[in-house]
Design a protein around this nucleic acid. Structure first.
Length: 862
RNA sequence: GCCCGGAUGGCGAAAUCGGCAGACGCAGCGGACUUAAAAUCCGCAGGAGUUUACCCUCCGUGGGGGUUCAAGUCCCCCUCCGGGCACCA
């Protein structure tokens, strides 16, 4: 039955078409994350798309103009691997996979309008990646710099972070990945760090979990940047101190005055969230890669060797993903820097626990009030100086050594001591005043640091968007002019494992003419990260054929923001933060009005089996094709919605699919039994007053209410399906009674029950709904019909069952009319035999009545 | 280490606002139909006790405490499982 229906749908081109802007119906944009075209849909996709399709169908039936598109995240490394393995060109391989997966999606009965399909590996799409890149380049949002990359010596090529597994190459599990310095293109996402962070508060429709993850990823810290000036002249004291190998600071020079410091003198900048502890600083610690370290080491052979050791150690730990537990080691540089607050000269060290990438790559070490500094100082015998005490022991008189708290003491609700003019301030106040003081004196000030780093988009791969720049011997970096876009990815490229970008080997591609001087130029051979493709694909759906621009503004204004985005939580950070960034860039280019791509986000749970994520290595993969072949698309989809609420992990149990399939079979047979009757009795309304008729209609309308509520609320479709099952059970059980009614009445009941049941099924089991709709004589496709309206009158209970408790224990159920007076209810409760036994010989102390819900008699012995 | 989730029958789960714990389904058991099986239909089904049976009683939502007439649900403490981040200064 399903393949036949599928053909019928395919023939109706306009079935799922969205109207252009201005149609009058309210718009609704429901989007599911586009898949990578591996060639095989997996159960995670089935789940994701079943949720989205149910919603799309429901919204359509409720009169919305629904945009429900699908596309392909079609660039990426697997195509190159397949090329190597099967000798198939990546393009061919990818397009074949797309055709295959499209068939699978159609077979599932997903309601996409394929005319909006977007395929990111086609020039019509990726030319706009290049166009956006050029706009960013113009605005300084794209830039080039040297940076560390993962390098597999075996493949002689660069790897993406995702391809580094436990520090080794994914193709050569024994081969440790190295870090190499390469020139890379970056997008300045950090320029939007604050806005991306603030924007999260304006996204109440996003799961807290995702918002928290993004917040942590952006990692904003408020603090101060302080400049420690290099102490060039080291006097006699220093000789002695240097001999102590930089373990304690040297006292301030005579007549030191912070306000008299030369703000232009060379120094080392330090970012700290705890300026209030600066009087407790006893050294500076620099990242081994810090530029100052290099200059210090130039004149000092033994220091250079030590730094190299530290670098090597840090590198190895980084590869083993073991940085946090690395033993803290360091080396004294022999130099000193002036603490601008008190003039002390602090020994400058290099330490393996300081990271170049964060803050300024240098820290002031305050062992008494920082765990890492404490650990380091203990190990190397550095001075530890307490400058913060808990409020209760920090009374000036009591501030003796013996009152020192356990170190390191990091509590911020404390008082600052031994800190010059800032002594006895609270930590937070001291932080503010000290940062302000630094600003006044010109050696620093309040500052903010982010964990977020700029987005490196260069990939030394073939199957991606070519980065549209040229390198001219005379003019340097030259952007490809707009009218020369797209820079086409050449087709006949030999994919090898031998070093660097495959495009580098294509002479016709690399050789170019500089558009400025007409001289010879070399084309960039790196391609873009595929996250670029997925950062804006959902805009293209609104205007997929546009050859003049990525999209027309008025279409975006109509469709955006996305009303509901649905996908896996694994994209919570990367894809979803890049998309938010890209949208803001487009907004600042004047291309869109919205700042956020999607107002609501839903992250579905994983599909697992036997308690573990499905994977080849565990051998617990369930193939959608197999499920569909065995149980049909409706059963497969419906089970994926029935087995668990969509936000939770779903344990795939084939017996469960069989159960859903059985249920759908029951519904089918029910429809076949009464379809003829419904068709011929269309419009019959006189269902009479029989208890069986009113009872069933009540059940029907309660179910309508229940399901409608779920769609606009929690999306617990598992309970929707359970409700439909309950309804069907009630109908089946009442069949004999209905048969006893006068023919006109039973026909009228079936005419109300069956078509509405079909409508309720439509979002979850579209094939069966369509089939039965036809059987019942529906005028046109079920999925173009109106969602049934809940009738409060029909749903009203004649009688409610109110549980009766005595001292909180259930003793019976009283039956009363809904809205019955409390006295009536209590009367009914008291007349229950079990209640009387329980109350016998005791005093009723209190009666708790929750109208319509419960009655509780509180009794005491007596 | 820090931040999020989660824990309810043999299993997936339900109980949406503090008000009948286990809806719905799976597996299981019993029955009908059948030469038989499959399919289908009907019924039973948290645990313990008592009982010929009907009934009835007690216990029960990871563990311990608390608030309340009433707690799976709220508060405090703890255990286990899953995920994210992690030398972020």
């Amino acid at each position: 039955m399903e393949p036949r229906r599928q053909q019928g749908w395919a023939a109706q081109a306009d079935l799922y078409r969205a109207d252009p802007p201005g149609s009058g119906r309210p718009k609704y944009y429901v989007l599911e994350m586009l898949p990578y075209p591996s060639g095989q849909l997996h159960m995670g996709h089935v789940r994701n798309y079943s949720i989205g399709d149910a919603l799309a169908r429901y919204m359509r039936m409720n009169g919305y103009n629904v945009l429900h598109p699908m596309g392909w995240d079609a660039f990426g490394l697997p195509a190159e691997n397949a090329a190597l393995k099967n000798n198939t060109p990546p393009r061919e391989w990818t397009l074949n996979n797309i055709a295959q997966m499209r068939r699978q999606m159609d077979r599932l009965g997903l309601s996409y309008d394929w005319r909006t399909e977007v395929t990111t590996c086609l020039p019509e799409y990726y030319r706009w990646n290049q166009w956006f890149f050029l706009r960013m380049l113009e605005r300084g949002l794209a830039y080039r710099k040297r940076s560390k990359v993962n390098w597999c010596p075996e493949c002689a090529t660069v790897l993406a972070n995702e391809q580094v597994i436990d520090g080794c190459c994914w193709r050569h599990e024994e081969t440790v990945v190295e870090q190499r310095d390469l020139e890379q293109w970056f997008l300045r996402i950090t320029q939007y760090a604050q806005e991306l962070l603030d924007g999260l508060d304006a996204l109440p429709g996003w799961p807290d979990r995702v918002r928290t993850m993004q917040k942590n990823w952006i990692g904003r810290s408020r603090g101060a940047t302080i400049r420690f000036f290099l102490a060039d002249a080291v006097g006699d004291d220093a000789e002695e101190s240097a001999a102590r190998r930089g373990k304690t600071p040297l006292p301030a020079a005579e007549g030191f005055d912070p306000e008299g410091l030369d703000r232009d003198a060379p120094g080392i900048e330090v970012f700290t969230t705890r300026v209030d502890t600066i009087y407790g600083a006893t050294s500076l610690q620099l990242a081994p890669q810090h530029p100052a370290v290099e200059s210090f080491a130039q004149a000092d052979e033994s220091l250079r060797r030590e730094v190299e050791d530290l670098l090597e150690e840090q590198r190895r730990a980084r590869e083993a993903d073991d940085l946090a537990t690395l033993e803290k080691r360091g080396a004294f540089t022999g130099r000193f820097a002036i603490n601008p607050f008190n003039g002390e000269r602090l020994p400058i060290w290099v330490a393996n626990y300081v990271l170049l990438e964060y803050g300024t790559g240098a820290v002031m070490s305050v062992p008494a009030h920082d765990e890492r500094d404490y650990e380091f100082a203990k190990k190397h015998g550095l001075e530890i100086r307490v400058v913060v005490l808990p409020r209760r022991t920090a009374e000036p008189a009591a501030a003796g050594e013996q009152d020192s708290p356990a170190l390191p003491y990091v509590e911020e609700d404390s008082l600052v001591i031994n800190s010059g003019r800032f002594s006895s301030l609270g930590c937070e106040e001291a932080q503010e005043k000290m940062a302000a003081f630094a600003a006044v004196c010109g050696f620093g000030g309040p500052d903010v640091a982010y964990r977020l780093k700029d987005w490196g988009i260069s990939r030394q791969r073939y199957w991606g968007t070519p980065i549209p720049v040229l390198y001219c011997e005379r003019d340097g970096i030259v952007p490809v002019p707009d009218d020369q876009l797209p820079v086409l990815l050449p087709d006949d490229v030999k994919i090898t494992q031998q070093g660097g970008s495959p495009l580098g080997g294509v002479v016709e591609f690399v050789k170019a003419v500089c558009p400025r001087c007409g001289g010879p130029a070399r084309r960039e051979t790196d391609t873009m990260d595929t996250f670029v493709d997925s950062s804006w694909y959902f805009y293209r759906y609104a205007d997929p054929g546009n050859a003049e621009a990525p999209f027309a503004r008025e279409k975006i204004d109509y469709w955006f923001p996305i009303d509901q985005y649905i996908g896996g939580v694994e994209h919570a950070i990367l894809h979803l933060i890049y998309s938010r960034f890209w949208t803001r860039v487009m907004r600042d280019l004047g291309l869109v009005a919205n700042s956020e791509p999607a107002v609501r986000l839903f992250t579905q749970g994983m599909v697992i089996r036997n308690g573990a994520k499905m994977s080849k290595s565990k051998g617990n993969i369930v193939s959608p094709d197999e499920m569909i072949a065995r149980y049909g698309a409706d059963s497969t989809r419906m089970y994926s919605l029935f087995a668990a609420p969509p936000d939770r992990d779903l344990d795939w149990q084939e017996d469960g699919v069989a159960g859903v399939s059985r249920f759908l079979g029951r519904v089918y047979r029910l429809g076949m039994r009464y379809g003829q009757q419904v068709r011929s009795g269309a419009g019959a309304r006189e269902y009479g007053e029989s208890p069986v008729a009113t009872g069933l209609l009540r059940e029907l309308h309660k179910t309508i209410r229940k399901i409608s509520q779920e769609f606009s609320g929690r999306w617990h479709f598992n309970t929707c399906i359970a409700a439909i099952m309950t309804l069907v059970n009630a109908i089946t059980a009442a069949e004999p009674d209905l048969a006893q009614l006068p023919a006109a009445e039973s026909t009228a009941v079936w005419c109300e029950l069956l078509p509405n049941l079909v409508l309720l099924l439509a979002p979850f089991a579209p094939y069966l709904a369509e089939e039965l709709g036809e059987v019942c004589g529906a005028a046109g496709p079920v999925h173009s019909q109106r969602w049934p309206q809940f009738d409060a009158e029909l749903a009203r209970d004649e009688e409610v069952e109110v549980p009766v408790q005595v001292n909180g224990k259930l003793r019976g159920v009283a039956r009363v009319a809904p809205g019955a007076a409390n006295e009536v209810l209590q009367q009914a409760a008291m007349s229950l035999e079990r209640v009387q036994t329980a109350v016998a010989g005791k005093n009723i102390v209190k009666v708790v009545i929750v109208p319509g819900k419960l009655i509780n008699l509180v009794v005491a012995a007596g």
